[in-house]
């Protein structure tokens, strides 16, 4: 389909008309952090270079009730959580965050049955992207899939070209969106403007190529892990800000004769994540735990899903309280080093 443009001042009218048909979420600034919230719950901010939170909680909420129960004597009642039933659109999604969905899709469909609550939300969600004009210092999407030029999992994508947005549709859903009255066909000068903006954005990103090959020979015993382990705090900031992290725990909340079972986020960075009931912990120290995160993203994911588990959003880098920088870690691991025979299965 041909590209369109929409004047900046028409964006809110367009989103409001969409909001009549479905829930619309957009990045809003809330107490100093940017996160995706329903339209109207705060000031929309489209000039961010990375919202604090990814889309993760909109597909796998931090707390997700699986079922509730009640019992009286020997009679128990079970009530499953209803599947997501409303349509929604998420506006202003960064290219890396959209691409992350492809990875999470693969994770949640790897085994049968696939994760229905996740896919119910996934299938009812339309993604409208907003490409970055001004990538942050921590971004490195060019190394992990080049999503600015190779968008993934977006229905449509917008680029800020001054007083208007240049818009392209990538799916039928996207085409329908861009047929709204606020859009008009793009001219040659718009296409040129987009090109300029893209080039400028790309110039801010690392020029290094893909990682896939190198990853498979990462050194399991690299001295970098004991080093990281010394300073890593073992918090969950990196994993919880990551759009591809997906680990969860199942917990129960019981109150008298009723309660619920829910799943909530969990991460390999926590000591208890791998602690077994009988007391053994296969990842007993931060050395193993920091390695797990890096290896999972860059190595195991390629082995398992044939794609990287990192989309280069840089969140874990900018949010880590002790400046552990996965981009630098990976660069270190890829430095030609004296070959060592690594054991590499967990």
């Amino acid at each position: 389909m041909e590209a369109k443009v929409i004047a900046k001042q028409d964006i809110s009218a367009w989103l409001s008309s969409l909001a009549e048909k479905m829930e619309v979420l957009a990045p809003v600034e809330d107490g100093g952090v940017i996160r995706y919230r329903p339209l109207g719950e705060g000031e929309m901010n489209l000039n961010f270079s990375g919202p604090a939170k990814s889309l993760r909680d909109h597909f796998t909420p931090e707390t997700e009730t699986l079922f509730r129960y009640k019992y009286e004597g020997l009679k128990a009642e079970l009530e499953e959580s209803p599947a997501e039933e409303h349509d929604r659109l998420i506006f202003g999604v960064r290219a890396c965050d959209a691409a992350a969905l492809k990875y999470v899709d693969a994770v949640y469909s790897m085994v049968e049955p696939r994760d229905e609550p996740y896919f119910a939300r996934r299938e009812r969600t339309t993604i409208v992207g907003l490409f970055c004009n001004n990538p942050a210092w921590s971004c490195f999407c060019t190394e992990v899939g080049n999503f600015l030029t190779n968008p993934q999992e977006m229905d449509a994508g917008l680029t800020d070209i001054g007083d208007k947005y240049y818009a392209e549709a990538y799916t039928a859903k996207g085409e329908e969106l861009l047929s709204a009255a606020q859009f008009e066909p793009a001219g040659a000068e718009d296409a040129a403007a987009v090109e300029k903006v893209k080039q400028k954005a790309l110039s801010r990103l690392p020029a290094k190529g893909a990682h896939e090959e190198a990853c498979l020979s990462y050194n399991w015993d690299s001295p970098i892990f004991p080093e990281l382990a010394e300073k890593c705090l073992g918090c969950g900031v990196c994993a919880y800000s990551c759009p591809t992290c997906h680990c969860f725990d199942i917990q129960e909340c019981a109150q008298g004769k009723k309660g619920s079972r829910f799943r909530c986020w969990d991460t390999c960075q926590f000591e208890k994540f791998t602690l077994m009931g009988h007391g053994h912990n296969p990842r007993p120290s931060k050395k193993e735990r920091t390695r797990q995160r890096v290896f999972h993203k860059f190595k195991y994911s390629i082995e398992r899903y044939k794609m990287l588990g990192c989309v280069g959003c840089g969140r874990c880098i900018s949010a880590c309280p002790v400046n552990i920088d996965i981009h630098a870690v990976v660069a270190e691991l890829e430095k030609p080093a004296p070959a060592s025979e690594g054991v590499n299965n967990e």
């Binding site: 707390t63 009730t65 509730r68 909340c253 109150q255 009723k258 309660g259 619920s260 829910f262």
Partner: peptide
Amino acid sequence: MTEQEERT
């Protein structure tokens, strides 16, 4: 969230 609903 049950806890929440119960509180309400």
